[in-house]
Design a protein around this nucleic acid. Structure first.
Lengths: 243, 243
DNA sequence: GCGTGTCGGGGCGTTAGCGCACAGAAGCGC
DNA sequence: GCGCTTCTGTGCGCTAACGCCCCGACACGC
């Protein structure tokens, strides 16, 4: 099975690789179609595949006591699911849950590990991505602590839009509550306000972003901070640090 | 200047290295004595040195809008300050602040980068440490969201005790408030309760842990979870993943 | 058409933590 | 010993979010 490099380069990490490396990698990948609510990894369990989303979005969720959970990462076509492997670990620390169904490339963990070992370029790109994830994680932690639900919701919608590449997508209040670590009612309130202000529209799980610019204004600064930090982490990805 | 390997191996990461690698590394290190409240790194600024604490503790703090800040990491003799370098990045995403003054080894960033490039062993150990840090970051994010100040304070004291290797250390309520991202008064309340229950004692910035076992019971499960997760990440550190 | 499940909305009392302001107490320099 | 600074304790009103429970509305399958 052969995957067109053009399709693969929807993923920014893959796109950052030199053509030759990319082709080698694609040889070991298979194209998959991720279904909504599919679980790609469970905390404590060995990682079987890594995923390069091309047109899909995955949330990383940390599970606390029983009912409580919290999003600690959002992966779209700028990233990869399975960062633990980059850090020489075999098991996932979080649950990876498909939120935006769609296309992704996946690769068996063992093949990925080998590819990594053989390619300093790949290592470099992925290490920088891991750095971006860490920075985002720290930002999210602060955001969760200090910002109100409405602003956090706005931020999340923007981040998702960036990753889903669509103005509208499927997410219920219930799901958002899990992700943001609040009650469903909290989401309802915040979403109602945003809708009343004409920034979004939603009905039965389908959310549409109407006015992106104003939604950005409604979000906390974390959204902008994240973008900046990501851009900074991934700047000049094809170069080795020695360069 | 030569540093005794015995002193160096107070740091778990260094201790995990083969003797030959360790000696090479120590050659490029210098022993320093970190002062309380010293700032080792600022967000956005290039990292000048990495630090291997041997008998000191450093907090990593993410700065939000102006007054607000939040601890996102605690580094003692199990870790290193400057993980960004392991991920091929040159700048620190957070502020690194000395909380427990004491001895550390430090190394110029450039020498460290070279050492890293020349030693897969070192890379391996550090990558696994980065993984542990990430896992802890996710845990902390959830903890900050869901757990009450008292439990979080208990957890923090335990973690600090583990890193400071002393039953008593210097931290004011004000400092703790910054670190846990709450008001000073919130700390006062929680600390008063813990003191009334006989778990700790404090006076003018000097906190003493009296009953560790009961303090562990007062802390949220995150403390235990962290320990487990760290142990898991650092298991078999000297082996390559291929082994 | 009708039931059933999913989704969104509302109410009500409770609570953890906030912001602010002030007061006592212990250490430190001079 | 005096005064300043740092550290800790208290009071008060406020608010974001909680837990719980129920209702209406829409959608889909039969």
């Amino acid at each position: 099975m052969s995957i067109a490099p053009s399709a693969a380069s929807c993923n920014h990490l893959l796109a950052a690789l030199p053509q030759s490396e990319l082709l080698q990698l694609l040889d070991k990948c298979e194209a998959v179609d991720l279904k909504f609510a599919e679980i790609l990894a469970e905390p404590g369990e060995p990682i079987r595949h890594v995923y390069f989303p091309t047109r899909s979005a995955i949330v990383l969720v940390t599970l606390m006591d029983d009912r409580a959970s919290l999003e600690v990462g959002l992966v779209g076509n700028e990233g990869i699911v399975g960062t633990a492997l980059v850090l020489d670990m075999a098991v996932s620390p979080q649950r990876a849950l498909v939120q935006g169904p769609g296309a992704a490339l996946r690769m068996k963990a063992e093949l990925f590990r080998q590819a990594l070992e053989g390619s300093p370029e790949l290592q470099h790109v992925l290490k920088r991505y891991v750095h971006a994830v860490m920075a985002q994680l720290a930002q999210t932690a602060g955001c969760t602590r200090f910002h109100v639900v409405e602003a956090r919701l706005a931020r999340w919608l923007l981040m998702t839009q960036d990753r889903a590449h669509a103005d509208s997508f499927h997410v219920t209040h219930e799901f958002l509550a899990q992700v943001l670590g609040v009650r469903r009612v909290g989401i309802t309130r915040a979403a109602t306000t945003l809708q009343a202000r004409g920034l979004i529209r939603y009905a039965r799980g389908n959310i549409t972003i109407l006015e992106r610019a104003r939604l950005e204004a409604a979000a906390c600064g974390c959204y902008a901070a994240d973008k900046l930090s990501y851009a900074h982490s991934m700047a000049h990805p094809p170069q080795r640090p020695a360069a």
